[in-house]
Each structure stands twice: as structure tokens, then as C-alpha cells.
């Protein structure tokens, strides 16, 4: 079952301004019957002041579609037409104390109905500027069409790219398979093949050690500022031996500094790394032998 807020439930169970407004001079009809949502918004606008005197809705849709329609009419009553155009779908969702991600499109439908009604009042033609696809990322409510278009427009290649551009996949990560499928399709159109990004693979030992050195070099200035220092002693597989010198030597915070270095190395190399004081080298070698 959906987790609807109390406000959504209240507006669904006792909708405000249901039905057509009498003497309406602005009508907006939007939605998609295949998606199961459609809304007719009617407004009565005072031609002198351009104030919305009354608003009414008729909705074919689910609980949150009806609640969003009801909320919309409450929000815009008393506004001028220009003010009403400023109302965003987030405003509608906020008015309802939030909507589940799968239901955000109900608030989008509300905003579109408003734009369509204002266009109708002004004798203009309103056309929808977005297409809606299947919901992929539930954490940030990003649909397939949005991801596809962003991948095409920006020539994206990896799931990480998609997350950086759209936020999709940046939360619980369970939609990564879906994002990979979209990437595979779009890249195939462009004659490319999708490959999951290899992390810091294919480095020679020398390249890897130089990279470790670079990371450690980048940390040194901070330690030197506190009159400490660190030097790389040896690299043995995933274990990296360092010497803490200066003020760092014997400092109570040394182990925290070490784990900070370890974190930076792991992020940079994309692999598991253990940073160990060089003093433990002999001990570990003995235990290994």
C-alpha cells in the first residue's frame, strides 16, 4: 500500500472544489488515459484583475491524482493568472505534505492542467513538453524517458555518468540493472556497446605505485601544516606500509590519520586497501612465514 500523507488522504476522502465551475472562462484538459490519470480543470477568471475567482476539477485517477487536483484548486483560488503560472508541481506536492515517488506525476499533471487552462484563457495553444516513461529510480523519481534523453543528449556511457547527470541510481542502487539496460539500448543505436566501467584496472605495478605516491603526496601538505608528515615505505598487494613522522609520530590521532589516508587511497584506486604503519612490517612478515 502507498504511504500517503494525512493531507493526501484528507483531500482524497473529502475533495475540495469537485465539479465544473459555472461560468468558467478557462479550461485545461490534460493527462493520459493509458496511465490512468486525466484531469479537467475549470477556472473562473475576473477579466479586469485577472484574479482566479473560482476553480473546479474533474479527475479520472487514483487517490493521489484526486488529492493533487483538489490541492491545486485550493492553491490557485485568489491568485492572479500570472501568480498561478508560477505554481510548480513541487508546490502541489508540498501542499499535500509530500507524495510517494511513483505518484509525483500526479502533481505534474496538476501543473500542466493549470498551464493548459491559462493558455485556454489567453486564447493560446498549450502543448505538453515532456513524455513520461516507466519509473526506473524510485529514490529520486526518475523515469526511463528522462534517462534515455539525458544519455543521448550528453553522450553518457556509464551508470555513474547517469547518476551524475540525473541523480538516478544514486540512492539505494537497486535500479542499476534498469539503467544499464537503457545505456545498452541507447549506445547500440549509436553503434557502440555498453561495458560496465572497470575500476582502476589494467595498471602495471609501477603505475599503481606511482598513483599511490601521488595520493600520499597530495595529503602531505595538510600533515605538514600540523608539523607532521608521512612517507611511503612499501606496497605489498593490498597492504601499504607508511611511516608517520614529525608530530604525527606518536600522536594519539595517528590511527585516525591512517584511516583517512586509507579512505583516500581506496577512493582513488577503486580497490580495497589496508594502510599499516611500517613498524608492523616485521611482525606481519613473521606471522605470514
Amino acid at each position: 500500500m502507498w504511504e500517503y500523507s494525512e493531507k493526501v488522504k484528507e483531500h482524497f476522502f473529502s475533495p475540495r472544489n469537485a465539479g465544473m465551475v459555472e461560468g468558467a472562462n478557462a479550461v485545461g484538459e490534460v493527462g493520459s488515459i493509458s496511465c490512468g490519470d486525466a484531469l479537467r480543470l475549470t477556472l473562473k477568471v475576473d477579466p479586469e484583475s485577472e484574479t482566479i475567482l473560482d476553480a473546479g476539477f474533474e479527475t479520472f485517477g487514483c487517490g493521489s491524482a484526486i488529492a493533487s487536483s483538489s490541492a491545486l484548486t485550493e492553491i490557485v483560488k485568489g491568485m492572479t493568472v500570472d501568480q498561478a503560472l508560477e505554481v510548480s508541481n513541487q508546490d502541489i506536492a508540498d501542499f499535500l505534505e509530500g507524495l510517494p515517488p511513483e505518484k509525483m506525476h500526479c502533481s505534474v499533471m496538476g501543473r500542466e492542467a493549470l498551464q493548459a487552462a491559462v493558455a485556454n484563457y489567453r486564447g493560446e495553444q498549450w502543448s505538453d513538453d515532456h513524455e513520461e516513461g516507466a519509473l526506473i529510480c524510485k529514490c529520486f523519481a526518475i523515469d526511463a524517458v528522462m534517462i534515455e534523453e539525458t544519455v543521448r543528449a550528453n553522450n553518457l556511457k556509464t551508470v555513474e555518468d547517469v547518476t551524475n547527470y540525473t541523480k538516478a541510481g544514486g540512492g539505494c542502487t537497486s535500479c542499476h540493472e534498469g539503467i544499464e539496460e537503457i545505456l545498452a539500448v541507447v549506445l547500440a543505436e549509436q553503434g557502440e556497446t555498453f561495458e560496465s566501467a572497470p575500476v582502476a584496472a589494467g595498471m602495471t605495478n609501477l603505475q599503481r605505485i606511482r598513483r599511490i605516491e601521488t595520493v600520499i603526496e597530495s595529503i602531505r601538505p595538510q600533515l605538514q601544516a600540523d608539523h607532521g608528515d608521512v612517507e611511503l615505505v612499501d606496497v605489498d598487494g593490498n597492504t601499504i606500509y607508511v611511516n608517520m613522522t614529525g608530530a604525527c609520530s606518536g600522536c594519539q590521532m595517528a590511527s585516525m590519520t591512517l584511516s583517512g589516508i586509507q579512505q583516500r587511497l581506496m577512493e582513488d584506486l577503486g580497490e580495497f586497501i589496508k594502510v599499516v604503519p611500517a613498524g608492523q612490517m616485521a611482525q606481519i612478515a613473521k606471522a605470514g612465514a
Partner: peptide
Amino acid sequence: EGEAILLLLNKVGIAASSGSACTSGSLEP
């Protein structure tokens, strides 16, 4: 729409289900 029907049925203590798009989170019924 089915979800709206289910919510009102649930309010009076009746549990059923629907083939509507909204109850499943998909866009198609």
C-alpha cells in the same frame, strides 16, 4: 480508477484488489 475504489473500500473495511496502473506503480493498467 481502481486505486481510488480500493481506498474507499478500505475505508469501510473491505479488502479487494485492482488491475489499475496505480496500484502496481506501473504506467499501464
